[in-house]
Write a protein that binds this DNA or RNA. Structure first.
Lengths: 239, 239
DNA sequence: CGGAAGATTGAGAGTTCTCAATGCCTGTGG
DNA sequence: CCACAGGCATTGAGAACTCTCAATCTTCCG
């Protein structure tokens, strides 16, 4: 278990932006850790209805927050990448949407009430978590802008840039390449479009030499051009 | 000035969900107050580039957070109603989008560093502000779902329900009526559509007897039907 | 009263969706 | 090792929704 803890605490502290004299916070975090859990692709990770569930910090794999509509269609509202929390908002009241594992997933479990009391005792932790919430919010706003005012090609380009940059920031991507373990349908659910059109858009980006896709391996062949197409400005990502 | 303070502190505490023994927090908030300011319609309230600006708590009028694209189009990412903070995310680092006054606006100014230290000293305040951030996030997720998976008619219906419910929660609306001081173009910028189509959608909702609009006065004639059209479930609003 | 902003309507164009068919890859059982 | 099944990707064609451009009407404000 001790190794498990070391596996996640340091990266998590880094993500929180807590460096140097973070001993007290580190000790506090050790106490919120209550184990880890694995999920299979398709499994619901954080069922918001369940008040007793711990928080999930993704160690490995991808997840997504989503909402399902009455007609059965689904909108993904955020991807959760390794190093990110599945359910930060469940520190508060009234969280409504669920998270699903998009791959096989490993998550550290953080006791919620322990986390709450750690927050109360460590303003620095509290600040950092609030910053995390702001980061999520900034990404959401970017999604709103993409959905509202860009066409699907631009939006797709933007999302690919975003995913690359988010992964790069945790050393999960480099050289403009990354593994994107999503089906086109899942991608479509995030982009607010159909799988068919997603396919066509990807094809068009490929044909223009902007990206290449091989299975789940994505390469940004002309990153500058792609960013230009998606009007992507990474300023909104802080982590 | 003392009256000014009383004008906003109690409603703000209510919004924060801090009741009863909130004396310490109340005193702390008194100290962050550094005056109030008025804006004209169209004025930028919170220019995110400016690090010295205080936080704005809207006392009267509407504002909107937005982003402008290279082609000049604009996407509103949130409406800011009386009692809400314009720029909560500027408590953290890296906030990127601005806010504009949609009407003449009166805002209480809260000193940012004073607020930060108040947060450090009052876990309860910290919790409440984090809850506020989660509330914003929930609204944003609902917007993403609307933009991604609903047609414009459904989205419009949803937004009208949302605005009514948000206003009702601060006693600014009742009996399924409210004042919506938006031009159709501003509404369009929030809904991610054109002003022309916004006009047609409103007309269709009117013709179906779901709403009536007279100048800036909106009435939900058949609230249940309208909620059904927009698949609106108020659970995600907590405030 | 005049001008400007905002609302409304029409018509044609474009983007994206829907329905449907076909091809491809991966894992499983023989 | 090969055949098969099922999920996933790809392509085509027509329909639907929303946009663009343009004109007209109405309301607001000095």
């Amino acid at each position: 278990m001790a190794t498990d803890q070391e596996d996640w605490i340091e990266p998590f502290l880094a993500k929180l932006g807590i460096r140097g004299i973070g001993h007290a916070v580190r000790d506090a975090l050790r106490n919120v850790f209550v184990g880890s859990r694995t999920y299979r692709r398709g499994q619901v990770v954080a069922d918001q209805a369940d008040e007793t569930e711990p928080l999930h910090l993704v160690l490995k794999g991808w997840a997504a927050r989503y909402q399902t509509l009455e007609d059965g269609s689904r909108q993904i509202t955020d991807f959760i990448l390794p190093g990110e929390l599945c359910d930060l908002s469940r520190l508060g009241r009234g969280a409504t949407d669920s998270a699903v594992a998009l791959t096989s997933l490993k998550a550290a479990l953080l006791n919620r009430s322990a986390m709450r009391s750690a927050i109360g005792q460590h303003p620095r932790l509290s600040d950092s978590l609030m910053q995390l919430a702001f980061n999520e919010e900034a990404i959401l706003r970017a999604w709103v802008v993409c959905l509202g005012r860009r066409n699907k090609r631009e939006h797709t380009a933007h999302l690919l840039c975003e995913l690359y940059e988010r992964l790069r920031r945790t050393d999960l991507a480099s050289r403009h390449e990354f593994v994107m373990p999503l089906t086109q349908e899942e991608l479509a659910d995030a982009l607010g479009m159909t799988a068919v059109h997603t396919n066509r858009v990807l094809k068009s980006l490929r044909e223009d030499g902007l990206i290449s896709t091989d299975r789940h391996h994505v390469r940004l062949l002309q990153p500058k051009q792609l960013k230009k197409v998606g009007e992507f400005d990474e300023t909104y990502l802080f982590t």
